[in-house]
Amino acid sequence: MNNLMTTVFAFAVASVTAFSTGAMAQEVKGNAKAGHAKVDMCIGCHGIAGYQTAFPEVHKVPKISGQGAAYISSALNAYKTGARKHPSMRGIAESLTDQDIADVAAYYAADGAVQGATVPEQPSKQPNEMVAALLQKGACVSCHGVNFAKPIDPSYPKIAGQHADYLFVALKSYKVEGTTGLVGRANGVMGPIAKQFSNAELKAIASYLQSLDGDLKTVPESRFR
């Protein structure tokens, strides 16, 4: 039954992907060089290795260098519309034009890339039995790829190697319903998935994902070295 549900879920995601990919072809094309001149408001958090924020609880800000450009654009637009609730990020996103978002996304997608470097096709570390069952229950590979670093759609995030405390906060935010408040993420796919799990289970998943090799990194800006 679990395998059947995973297959059905993957088919449903693929159907949505076909639509989103077509829509993305109409989007603004980003320029990484132009983006480099537009990230001053980003580097104060994302350009410092290990930097922590206290909202909505203490956790490291996510690694975004090496993240997919389409996902960064999608996330910024979600903050801009309020689909993702975060006062600081919404304020920043609202100040950006569509071209700004595309340029910033292109910059971070290329930031810190090492020519010839590759990520293992399979997870660099196998999960224990409990975490393996949780990952299967959530059908996580159906969107994020077998190695959690090659999502099936570019608007989905790479999550291998991401900070566990950030992943935990992000996953919990998908469980928050309603349009009021300062925390929450409206997402028709991730909402139902996250609500299947207890916070302890989400923390176990996040801890495993952090242990994996991936493309994500924090590239310190020279002014912070």
Rank of each mutant, 00 (worst) to 15 (best):
Arg185Glu: 08
Val189Cys: 00
Ser155Trp: 01
Ile152Met: 11
Leu135Pro: 13
Glu177Trp: 04
Glu121Cys: 09
Lys172Cys: 12
Ala102Glu: 05
Ala106Tyr: 03
Gly138Pro: 13
His144Met: 09
Gln162Ile: 04
Phe148Asn: 00
Gly145Cys: 11
Asn128Phe: 01
Leu171Pro: 07
Ala164Pro: 07
Gly191Leu: 11
Val141Thr: 09
Gly112Leu: 02
Gly188Met: 07
Asp103Leu: 09
Gly191Gln: 15
Ser142Val: 04
Gly138Cys: 12
Asp98Ile: 10
Val189Met: 06
Ile152Ser: 11
Tyr108Phe: 15
His163Gln: 14
Pro120Ser: 14
Leu135Ser: 07
Pro120Gln: 11
Tyr156Pro: 07
Gln126Ala: 05
Ile101Gly: 09
Gln196Lys: 08
Gln122Thr: 15
Val189Glu: 03
Cys143Thr: 08
Pro151Ala: 05
Gly138Tyr: 12
Lys125Gly: 00
Val131Ala: 01
Thr97Arg: 10
Asp103Ser: 07
Lys175Cys: 11
Ser198Ile: 01
Ala170Ser: 14
Ile193Cys: 14
Leu182Gly: 03
Lys172Arg: 14
His163Trp: 15
Gly112Phe: 03
Leu167Gly: 05
Gly191Arg: 11
Gly191Asn: 14
Val189Ser: 00
Ala113Trp: 01
Gly145Ala: 07
Asp153Thr: 15
Asp98Trp: 06
Ala133Cys: 06
Val146Glu: 06
Gly181Thr: 13
Ala132Val: 01
Cys143Phe: 09
Val131Leu: 02
Ser142Met: 11
Pro127Gln: 04
Cys143Ile: 08
Val176Ala: 01
Asp153Tyr: 09
Ala110Met: 06
Pro123Asp: 00
His144Asn: 12
Leu167Trp: 06
His144Ala: 10
Glu121His: 11
Gly188Lys: 02
Val131Pro: 03
Gln99Arg: 03
Asn147Val: 08
Lys150Thr: 02
Thr97Glu: 06
Tyr107Asp: 02
Asp153Ser: 15
Lys158Gly: 00
Val183Lys: 07
Lys172Gly: 08
Asp111Thr: 05
Thr179Trp: 03
Pro120Lys: 14
Cys143Ser: 02
Leu167Cys: 04
Ile193Tyr: 09
Gly181His: 10
Cys143Lys: 06
Glu177Tyr: 04
Gly145Pro: 09
Pro120Gly: 13
Ala149Asn: 10
Ser142Trp: 01
His163Phe: 14
Phe197Asn: 02
Ala102Val: 06
Ala164Phe: 08
Ser155Asn: 01
Val104Arg: 11
Asp100Phe: 12
Ala117Asp: 11
Tyr166Pro: 13
Ala132Arg: 13
Gly112Met: 03
Ile193Pro: 13
Glu129Ala: 14
Tyr156Cys: 04
Ala106Glu: 06
Val176Glu: 12
Lys158Pro: 00
Gly181Met: 12
Gln126Val: 02
Gly178Glu: 13
Pro127Trp: 01
Thr179His: 01
Gly116Arg: 12
Lys137Pro: 05
His163Gly: 09
Asp103Gln: 07
Ala149Val: 03
Ala133Gly: 06
Ala133Pro: 02
Arg185Phe: 09
Pro120Met: 14
Ser142Asn: 05
Glu121Val: 15
Val169Gly: 09
Tyr174Met: 14
Met130Tyr: 07
